[in-house]
């Protein structure tokens, strides 16, 4: 028992918990320069860089990046874009679905996946002036 508590507290203090959450998707392509920031860790994105819940994706000028999430949602960012995945739950066996994302600037191409099919109201893209609800579709959005 003591040992279990010790290990738990070690994990907590070293922040291993966060790192052990499985990725919710991967970077599939990159042009130019882009980053994936998760819990303050800024990673220069390359093909196969993992994306986690709470990751913030950034592209520089003349750059772009494409990612695919677990539920087959396909998202690609144009240049000078900031896009975050704030909430993500994809647990079909427990009927648990959520995809809450946010674009603060730039341009985005979005192809909705299984979550939008199974529980459409669980998918939202928040922007500085309004929120987009997604009903099984493809769209593009620009924020200036």
């Amino acid at each position: 028992m003591f040992r279990v508590i010790l290990i738990c507290s070690m994990l907590l203090t070293t922040g291993v918990w966060a790192g052990e959450l499985p990725p919710i998707g991967y970077v599939k392509n990159i042009t130019g320069e882009a980053t994936v920031t998760t819990k303050g860790d800024i990673i220069r994105a390359k093909v196969s860089t993992p994306v986690y819940q709470s990751s913030v994706l950034n592209t520089r000028a003349q750059s772009s990046m494409g990612i695919i999430l677990k539920d087959a949602t396909v998202i690609s960012l144009g240049p000078e874009t900031e896009f975050a995945i704030d909430e993500y739950a994809y647990v079909p066996a427990k009927n648990k679905f959520k995809l809450g994302s946010r674009i603060t600037k730039g341009s985005l191409n979005y192809v909705s996946g299984i979550i939008a099919k199974l529980q459409p109201d669980a998918v939202t893209v928040t922007t500085p002036s309004g929120t987009i609800g997604v009903r099984g579709t493809k769209f593009v959005v620009k924020v200036e």
Partner: peptide
């Protein structure tokens, strides 16, 4: 559409 989105659309990965 082209002016604002060609880069984002071109970056779309092959669909699952």
């Amino acid at each position: 559409l082209n002016k604002d989105f060609s880069a984002a659309i071109a970056a779309q990965p092959r669909l699952p």
